[in-house]
Design a protein around this nucleic acid. Structure first.
Lengths: 162, 162
DNA sequence: CACCAATGGTTGACGAATCAACTTTTGATA
DNA sequence: TATCAAAAGTTGATTCGTCAACCATTGGTG
């Protein structure tokens, strides 16, 4: 079969809407964080995870798993954030191969401000304009999609005889 | 007021879910297009718009508006796509300042394949796993958010006395 | 204990995105 | 018609993300 099932009217509205919302929203979030706090969204995510971790520190690979980042990206990004004084790194005593990343006082300052900003933006752009029912449905959809993506990731392509 | 209204349980589920879905989904879409067709998602969007335009061509600035891209990004990206033989550019006869971008035969070939792939992926990751009601709600939410983002973009910050 | 694959991270090179500065052309106005 | 601001694109510098190769440590097995 060379022709797939194309999307009908309703499906297309949902899909195109989702794609457009995605692009617009992520651009919005990133722009707001940058202009008001001087943090990119990736910066924000790093600091958010660190600030929520016990002691404000994590092993590099743990942080990488939380963010779903490749190790090289994480390493490069942390180098830049370290140069800006937002995080610190030192070798792990337990495992000499590894590094422990910790949030600095300056980083904590920034993430506190940024978190307020971020919640305000989330409300302003999305949350406050949806009904309780829509919020529930949105959460459900997001869960389904994430589970589906995880499944697709786990079984890359053995399916052929169905 | 220094403390914003933090998100309650339900709101947080929706917001975090949305963010996570967004990242996972866009990574998935991009990865699939790259590995199966050799096109990045940006490449795909450019070709999709061109292929839908009358004559398979558009003025650069029109393409930029459709994509919400800055002109420099568009220019650089088109240079790369041109080098790969996916699009062609020539000066506009009507306006000597401007350029007309057109999709090549090779570009049409690729976008045809990629579109099938893309629809399949959309179904596989999202569409086929949602109920009709969820699809409707998703479209509604996406519309609301996009309108809200447009409004925020139009009036950057005059609102203060509400 | 000697070897060796796997783990944890860094580095360098290249493709992509953004910003500012720079053409060229257009179109309005004095 | 001479001028000048705005519009349409390009270019160069910087930053960010990804890929592949690399180094150091660990831990298991013969």
């Amino acid at each position: 079969m060379t022709e797939p099932r194309w999307l009908n009217e309703q499906e297309q509205r949902a899909w195109r809407g989702l794609m457009a919302m995605e692009e617009g929203l992520s651009a919005f979030i990133d722009r707001r964080l940058r202009t008001t706090c001087g943090l990119s969204h990736p910066d924000y995510q790093v600091l958010a995870h660190l600030s929520e971790a016990p002691g404000g520190q994590l092993r590099s690979f743990q942080l990488g798993e939380l963010l779903h980042w490749e190790k090289s990206r994480l390493s490069q990004h942390l180098s830049r954030m370290q140069a800006r004084g937002l995080v610190a790194r030192e070798r792990s005593k337990a495992d000499q191969r590894g590094a422990v990343v910790s949030i600095t006082a300056e980083g904590r300052q920034l993430i506190a401000t940024a978190a307020r900003q971020h919640v305000g933006d989330a409300r302003d752009a999305v949350i406050d304009h949806l009904t309780a029912s829509e919020l529930r449905t949105l959460a459900t959809i997001a869960d389904k999609v994430q589970r589906r993506l995880a499944a697709l990731d786990a079984e890359p392509g053995p399916d052929a005889g169905d």
